[in-house]
Design a protein around this nucleic acid. Structure first.
Length: 644
RNA sequence: GCGCCUGUAGCUCAGUGGAUCAGAGCAUCUGACUUCGGAUCAGAGGGUCGGGGGUUCGAGUCCCUCCAGGCGCGCCA
């Protein structure tokens, strides 16, 4: 913030809009510097050194807060020396004053953002790829909330797709006793689940078995189409069975991500999108605005399509049209078509709405609502200014089609405010896949995609359980093990930027030393412990000594960065900068803890310092760190532990 | 065929066109302390930032090109 103030002033003086800072090679030059005059030389057509001298003079006259001295070094750098005692005092004071709000800002000005994430098919247990989605999505929700946006977290439930149908087929028809095709009583079917493993785990195996069986069993495959049709038709025993199954799985999913401190405001069911006639409304709009055409010839004859690209193209699999089919020749709507309608709803421009029901109260104390056929009308959901869809990168093309269709219908602003937050997938190494018992093809590739159909993947709960097991013996309570495991996994998923594929490795994921969530929690708990042992309940006036040591300077500088890092995370829609920052902050604190005064003959523990002024000051700095770290972890969806 | 993403130390990854911007962790090796919490800390070795060209006073960062790997371009969802 000290640099931001300087940047503002320089922008004013020079009339530039870009001022960046860096650290000088020698400490004598100053605490930070800028090369803005080198760039200015080109614009002003004057020697950079001359510009720098004028700028330094002007800056000295204006007496910037917390700047002790402004100097110039060739070929035109302007260096700043910080008035450390006053600066440290002000940072400590600011963090204490704002408390849990330190790091918050109001750049969003209350604008509403709908963030949709997780979106896992409700037919089997979540795997670690789904965990990555949930962690990124939930972190973005938290970051935008802290930046002053009104955020709505939605989780879309595709309860009418083939994936659910497949597991329904499995339960109804794979093993004896088989469903008679019409009975309302499905208790015998439900009795097939013996409770030996969690239901979502059981479905994981069942789904793999069904998929396998389809390859040879034509009769069963015929059941798939039949079941899918019944689910789409609604109001029949099979559809009700499917909904019950999906609901059970959704509960399992919510429990899994709940372990990682992930929560939502609304569950949006695909069945309700059909039920409420979303597509009909969107179809009318698309036709009215001429965004969609009925094809009478070519490969897409009989379909309603959106024109894309330049007609027929060559792909590896032959010639096909680049146009996107929204309504098939048999009259059914494609996934993309339905998605266009749904995207319009998110902005409140569809002219239709869901009905809503309270699902329950989540462990974080917040209400979770769901769409429901028998719900009530409410005007609080959707109607967003901006929509962020957290979906893996493989759906980039389809997402762009959806947004472009909004634009073609005339919702230009909505299309522009539609953001596909794409992230790379989590895959397994061939070795890891083999370890999980998969038949690994030797196709020259080092990686193996996870596959629900093959039952190949690492389940989310298995990863969390493995982490809990690793930590259990070194924590005070099972609850702490759970929180620490969540911290480790969220940090692991957050520190890698969204554009990078994660080739999953158990050893790397379960690491507890070095650059990990455990280290960050440890630093926080240590600070809490120090304050506890010092018997500090509150601080009065803190007097900062004339000589601020290097570790103190570094720690204070880091603490002061949180608001800027938060804004960066918001700009990039990524938890990565915050994860990085949490580790650097922890490192700066540990440095300070180990050697608060490197020049002193002996490092005296804070709580044993005799001089009450120095003791209070050092502990106040510990407290500022504690608050800053807690806020940072909280934004990452990690519950800060006061003891481990 | 077209489009998007990735390539930085043995491994996993950070890195706003600006000087210490060649960084962190893991792994390896050498050390520290009967602790304000050792899940820690100090130190060492380890680099053609995929290759080449360009723009610039200055490029890991921007542009072009090539190479390697991944993904996408369904009347699947």
């Amino acid at each position: 913030m000290i640099q931001e103030q300087v940047a503002r002033t320089i922008k004013q003086i020079l009339g530039t809009n870009e001022v960046t800072f860096n650290i000088p090679p020698k400490r004598e030059f100053g605490d930070f510097s800028t090369a803005v005059c080198l760039a200015q030389a080109r614009v002003q057509k004057r020697p950079p050194l001359e510009i720098a001298r004028d700028l330094a003079d002007e800056l000295s006259k204006r007496r910037l807060p917390f700047i002790r001295e402004v100097t110039v070094t060739p070929p035109g750098y302007v260096n700043f020396k910080i008035d450390h005692p006053r600066y440290v005092g002000s940072v400590i004071e600011r963090v204490r004053r704002r408390g849990a709000d330190y790091g918050r800002a109001n750049v969003g000005r209350g604008r509403k953002v709908l963030v949709e994430h997780t979106n896992v098919n409700p037919n089997k247990a979540m795997h670690i790829g789904h965990l990555r989605n949930a962690v990124i999505g939930d972190s973005v929700v938290r970051i935008l909330d802290r930046l002053g946006y009104k955020v709505e977290a939605a989780n879309y439930i595709d309860d009418t797709g083939v994936q659910v149908a497949d597991v329904v087929v499995g339960m109804l028809y794979l093993d004896e006793p088989r469903y008679d095709g019409e009975s309302e009583d499905t208790s015998q079917i439900w009795a097939k689940y013996d409770g030996s493993v969690p239901f979502d785990y059981w479905c994981w195996d069942l789904y793999a078995r069904v998929s396998q069986e389809y390859e040879t069993n034509e009769e069963l495959k015929a059941k798939r189409a039949e079941v899918l049709h019944l689910i789409e038709k609604q109001n029949n025993p099979v559809a009700r069975f499917a909904k019950e199954l999906a609901t059970k799985i959704v509960k399992a999913h919510l429990a899994t991500v709940g372990r990682l401190n992930v929560y939502y405001d609304l569950l949006n069911w695909e069945s309700d999108i059909y039920e409420r006639g979303f597509w009909k409304a969107a179809f009318e709009l698309l036709k009215q605005r001429g965004a969609i055409e009925f094809e009478t010839e070519g490969p897409n004859a009989g379909c309603w399509v959106v024109r894309f690209g330049r007609g027929l193209i060559h792909t590896d699999e032959g010639i096909r049209s680049e146009d996107k089919v929204l309504v098939r020749s048999n009259g059914t709507v494609t996934y993309t078509g339905k998605d266009i309608a749904y995207q319009m709803w998110k902005f409140g421009v569809l002219g239709r709405d869901f009905l809503y029901k309270l699902w329950g109260i989540q462990p974080n104390g917040k209400e979770l609502w769901t769409t429901a056929p028998d719900g009530i009308e409410l005007d609080r959901f959707g109607r967003a200014n901006k929509v962020i869809n957290v979906i893996d990168v493989r759906q980039s093309y389809t997402q762009q089609v959806v947004y472009d269709c909004l634009r073609r219908v005339g919702f230009v602003r909505e299309a522009r405010n539609s953001i596909h937050l794409d992230y790379e997938v989590v895959v397994l190494s061939k070795a890891a896949a083999a370890e999980l018992g998969a038949e690994v093809e030797d196709d020259g590739s080092e990686i193996q995609a996870m596959s629900g159909r093959k039952g190949l993947g690492v389940k989310g709960d298995d990863l969390i359980n493995a982490m809990v097991n690793r930590l259990r013996d070194n924590v005070r309570s099972p609850e702490n093990a759970e929180i620490l495991a969540a911290a480790a996994i969220r940090y692991f998923m957050s520190r890698i930027s969204t554009g990078k594929m994660i080739v999953f490795d158990f050893d790397e994921a379960l690491r507890t030393t070095g650059d990990t969530g455990v280290y960050c929690q440890y630093a926080h708990a240590r600070a809490c412990s120090i304050l506890r042992k010092a018997g500090i309940t509150g601080f009065g006036k803190v007097r900062v000594p004339e000589q601020v040591t290097l570790p103190e300077q570094n720690l204070v500088k880091k603490i002061a960065e949180l608001p800027a890092v938060m804004r960066k995370a918001g700009r990039e829609l990524s938890p990565t900068p915050l994860a990085r920052y949490a580790f650097e902050l922890a490192t700066a604190f540990t440095d300070y803890y180990e050697r608060p005064d490197p020049d002193a003959a002996e490092q005296v523990p804070f709580i044993k310092i005799q001089d009450p002024v120095l003791r209070t000051y050092r502990l106040a700095l510990v407290d500022a760190f504690r608050q800053c770290m807690a806020n940072c972890l909280d934004a990452l969806g990690i519950v800060p532990l006061e003891e481990i």
